[in-house]
Design a protein around this nucleic acid. Structure first.
Lengths: 156, 156
DNA sequence: GCATCATTTTAGAAACATTCTTGATTTTTA
DNA sequence: TAAAAATCAAGAATGTTTCTAAAATGATGC
């Protein structure tokens, strides 16, 4: 088990969460394919082979637990399944409306420092998190003439 | 009919969109309750009395047309119905995770100028829109001890 | 203004993602 | 290892959004 995963298992145990095979499996799947910001079903498909009796509902329930304990961030885009991000620090995403992929912008193109990202309250409202998302068409889809790449992520 | 609505009716006609009573009604409803960033159902409920035969599907279809022609922006939050915003210019929102309300931040607390908001391309990807959302607990819910206010918007 | 054709609306069915329920299984505790 | 607590699997249920087909409406040409 990767140390990152081990650490999260430990963290959850300390919080009183019963760490079952399934929950650990979802942690590992997130570690393996988390960078694509997978949906619950992506994780389920990734794990079915290894854990044939795992059910999609368990994946959803598990992700809800992880979310409750701050291990994952939920992302929602119009006409898209909910996605999960293991990086819970605020960081901007790019969402390609053609192929439907989502990725972390900072990886490829760092954002200039912006005071907006650090506000803790706004006009009396408590800010717990800031979402920034660039919405548009990715380089690849631009080159390929806006053709969506799969069944899962139709253009909209 | 308010001049704002009139102008949008005109705009859509020029684009070749058949302007029916229903479509105009949805434009008016957006004009009337648009500031709360309503869901399709909110708009439907707002209009049912005036147009008893209007169907929810028509509201959805109509909003899709408006979206296609750039008159509304779709907003999506985890565990929430899709919402529609008549302000299609990028502007930050606040989403209260307790009562579920969404509002425009700029109205109450202007955001400092931020270079991030004006990027047209990022690393070769075409940026068409930038979403910024502050997520947290609103002033009122803080005061009232995190009690959700209605059936429609449970805390999550 | 009327006939024709295209488009839109309605109502309900369907699809889809997500959540809930129940009994079975596993884990924890002692 | 037994009893209690928590979780899981499977499928049913829910809620939102989309689709379908027939009826209604709107546009166009006369």
């Amino acid at each position: 088990m990767r140390p990152d995963v081990e650490r999260k298992v430990q963290f959850l145990r300390e919080k009183g969460v019963v760490m079952t095979i399934q929950r650990t499996a979802v942690l590992e799947a997130l570690d393996e394919i988390g960078k694509v910001h997978p949906t619950a079903e992506d994780l389920y498909n990734h794990l079915r082979e290894r854990y044939p009796t795992l059910s999609l509902a368990t994946v959803y329930n598990t992700l809800e637990v992880f979310h409750r304990f701050g291990l994952v961030q939920e992302l929602s885009f119009p006409r898209q399944e909910r996605r999960y991000d293991t990086n819970t620090k605020p960081h901007p995403h790019f969402f390609c409306r053609v192929c439907g992929r989502v990725w972390d912008v900072a990886e490829t193109c760092p954002i200039p420092d912006c005071p907006v990202l650090d506000m803790e309250t706004m006009d009396g409202n408590k800010v717990e998190r800031v979402y920034i998302c660039f919405y548009g068409v990715c380089e690849e889809c631009l080159r390929e003439g806006f053709k969506p790449k799969g069944e899962r992520w139709p253009s909209s």
